[in-house]
């Protein structure tokens, strides 16, 4: 089963990539209030049981893919 994990830097942190892109867009008068850049990870897991597979995807995300001090995530089935 495939899972998509969307990870974004927490709002309190300076997102330097997001700020650079935002500044660039606004130099070209694009009217951007805020641009934040995170990452999207696709996990293809061996488990076929949906509940077990989701549990595993969350475990991998929380133990490795994410640092909760600086990031938040959402997960979706693909």
């Amino acid at each position: 089963m495939k899972w998509g994990i969307k990870i974004l830097p927490r709002e309190v942190l300076l997102d330097t990539q997001g700020r650079a892109v935002q500044d660039y867009l606004n130099q070209n008068s694009q009217g951007v209030n805020q641009c934040r850049i995170g990452k999207y990870i696709v996990l293809d897991l061996k488990q076929t049981d949906a509940a077990e597979s989701k549990k595993k995807a969350i475990e991998i995300t929380e133990q490795t893919l994410l640092n909760p001090l600086i990031e938040t995530y959402t997960i979706e089935s693909l």
């Binding site: 942190l13 300076l14 330097t16 700020r19 650079a20 640092n67 001090l69 600086i70």
Partner: peptide, 10 residues
């Protein structure tokens, strides 16, 4: 404790 993140000036 804590974490190291990108320098504030980039």
């Amino acid at each position: 404790p804590g974490v190291l993140v990108r320098n504030d000036h980039g």
